[in-house]
Amino acid sequence: MPALCPCGQDLPYAACCGPLHRGAATASTAEQLMRSRYAAFVMHDAPYLQQTWSLTTRPASIDFPPGREWTGLEIVGTTGGSLFHSEGTVEFRAHYTEAGNPGVQHENSTFTREAGHWVYVTAL
């Protein structure tokens, strides 16, 4: 049985975030982009993270904290961000362990469309 996607959906990676990471598909909603970006952090896929970061806030490089292992994504809520919106927010909790200690990154992130594609802008 194929491994489930790290984004938390009950789908194999190849049928979930894999096509987005490969560039074979684009996110339809802000939440789908958020999930795919979480999976990209899990997999250390810096090119995908750069590509899906707004031109207005994109950093020059992506750093992955050494020893941090992402262990789960919890979507708390969303506003906007659907097929019919041009902006949206996704509040989430990304769980991890680092040096054997559990942690959580809690954000309410903003997303917008650039050239018709959803991109991450910033955390509120």
Rank of each mutant, 00 (worst) to 15 (best):
Q105E: 07
H44L: 12
R37Y: 00
T78N: 09
L49C: 06
V76S: 00
N108H: 10
T78W: 03
A40S: 13
S109V: 05
H117P: 03
R68V: 00
F64W: 03
F84C: 04
R22F: 02
S28R: 13
D10N: 15
V104W: 02
S82W: 05
E74V: 11
H44D: 10
A27N: 11
P19F: 05
F92R: 06
T110H: 14
L49M: 08
L11M: 09
T110S: 14
P65H: 06
L124I: 05
R93F: 01
P47E: 06
T57N: 11
P47Y: 03
P2A: 14
E98Q: 15
S109F: 01
Y38N: 06
S109D: 06
L20A: 10
S36R: 09
Q105H: 04
T56M: 07
E87T: 15
R37K: 14
M34A: 04
G100K: 13
L49P: 08
A123V: 08
F41H: 11
G100Q: 14
V104D: 10
T79P: 12
P59T: 09
R37G: 04
T56F: 07
Q51S: 13
P6G: 02
Y13A: 05
A39I: 13
L73Y: 02
R35H: 04
P66W: 00
G100S: 14
A46E: 13
Y120I: 13
R22M: 10
L83W: 04
A46S: 13
R58S: 01
L73D: 03
E31F: 01
Q50V: 02
P59K: 09
E69M: 08
R113D: 10
E74C: 06
V104R: 05
A39E: 11
L4G: 12
M1W: 13
G77R: 13
G67Q: 13
A60D: 13
T89V: 05
A99D: 15
P12K: 00
F111L: 12
M1Y: 12
G77I: 01
S86W: 02
G81M: 11
A27I: 02
E31T: 06
F64N: 02
A27D: 11
C5K: 05
F92I: 08
V90S: 11
I75W: 00
T97Q: 15
T57M: 10
A15L: 06
R22I: 04
T112F: 09
F41P: 04
R93W: 01
S36V: 03
S54K: 10
L49A: 04
A24L: 12
H117W: 05
F92N: 06
S36A: 15
H95A: 07
I75Y: 00
E69P: 01
W53F: 07
A40N: 08
G23T: 14
F41K: 08
S86Y: 03
T26W: 04
A123H: 11
A39F: 12
S86H: 11
V90T: 11
T112S: 14
T71C: 10
T56L: 11
R113E: 11
Q105P: 00
L11S: 03
L83F: 09
A14F: 01
E87D: 14
A3M: 01
T78K: 10
I62T: 03
S36N: 08
C17A: 02
Y38K: 05
A14P: 00
P102L: 09
F64T: 01
P65N: 08
S28Q: 10
L33M: 12
I75F: 00
